[in-house]
Amino acid sequence: MAVTVYAPASMGNVSVGFDLLGAALAPVDGSLLGDRVSVAAADQGLSLRCCGAYADVLPPDPASNIVLRCAERFIERLGLEGVGLKLTLEKNLPIGSGLGSSASSVVAALAALNAYFDSPLDDQALLHLMGELEGEISGSVHYDNVAPSFLGGLQLMLPERAQPVPSFDNWYWVVAYPGITLSTAKMRALLPKQVEMATAIRFGQQLAAFIDACHRQDEETALAMLQDVLAEPHRAAHIPGYQAARGHLSDLGCAAVGISGSGPTLFAVARNRAQAEAAAEYLGQHYIMNERGLVRVCQLPQQGIQIWQEDVINAAL
């Protein structure tokens, strides 16, 4: 028996919801933008093989890989010591990109392990475990990447669970990763320890108004609220080319532009496919720095993880 799980890339924060909002990404061309993890039986012990476009930038020692750590924690949690497993990570997301790379690996690994063992953990318990493991890499436990990658769509983080938020079907989310790596921990260190009362009030107003507008399907208000008053003012200057790209994308008519997660990936919201393609073309020419970079025109999928059974695994991996 073997199971493979795909977990999509995600945007954390979505500008208006620092550590509280996240969105899954699905390229409109039907391609997959995310990591896959396969779990299969082995005679004894745990082993990990890595492949994929970004496998060469993973830690050379498998013992340092978060996927193996997920397996160890899952086995410990379920009391499955002594089980033999062969894991394969197809690493399709760049590390330190702002696309939820570590979250995608964690979600794919734990969902695959859970499916392989006939789902002993419910979604809530699994999501909490995902947050814990992802926090080991990012430096703190937060769910704005793991929740949308696992569940799909736009998700609001509540104290004990994630709450889906209606999005806008006509919006296109153009994401561009320039090909350089930024440490999430270092980008978080740029943020102030405290914020002024006026900034906190404005943040709360904008987040509340955005969520309300999404539920009422009030496009104009939702777009007007898609602004980052907490993190972007401190991070923008540290992302090469971001401020220039933001200005040009606004000139192209993109209704909102922001930093995906901690960056350096940026996102732009377009109201139609033609505008999205124009933004993608510009970003491909002016924001991408090397062959590692990528640009995708996406929408928000209602489904998060995808599961394949054994007859697809060999072809996929």
Rank of each mutant, 00 (worst) to 15 (best):
I201V: 14
R202W: 01
F203T: 02
Q205I: 03
Q205E: 13
Q206N: 15
L207V: 10
A208E: 00
A209Q: 05
F210A: 05
F210G: 04
F210Y: 13
D212M: 04
R216Q: 15
Q217V: 07
E219P: 03
L223F: 01
M225A: 12
L226C: 11
Q227Y: 00
Q227H: 12
D228T: 06
D228C: 04
D228Q: 11
E232I: 03
E232W: 01
P233Y: 00
P233D: 06
H234F: 14
A236Y: 10
A237K: 04
H238D: 04
I239G: 06
I239Q: 07
I239K: 03
I239R: 11
P240Y: 07
P240S: 09
Y242M: 07
Y242H: 15
Q243Y: 09
Q243P: 03
A245H: 11
A245P: 07
G247Q: 13
L249I: 01
L249R: 09
D251Q: 14
L252R: 00
A255P: 00
A256Q: 07
G258M: 10
I259T: 06
S260F: 12
S260T: 13
S260I: 06
T265N: 12
F267V: 06
F267A: 11
A270P: 05
A270G: 04
R271I: 04
R273T: 01
R273H: 15
A276T: 09
A276L: 11
A276M: 02
E277Q: 14
E277Y: 04
E277F: 07
A279T: 01
A279K: 04
Y282W: 15
L283K: 13
L283G: 07
L283M: 14
Q285V: 00
Q285D: 15
H286D: 14
Y287L: 13
Y287V: 13
I288N: 03
N290W: 10
E291W: 01
R292S: 12
R292G: 08
R292D: 13
V295A: 15
R296H: 13
R296T: 10
V297S: 11
C298I: 09
C298G: 06
P301Y: 13
Q302W: 10
Q303S: 10
Q309A: 04
D311W: 07
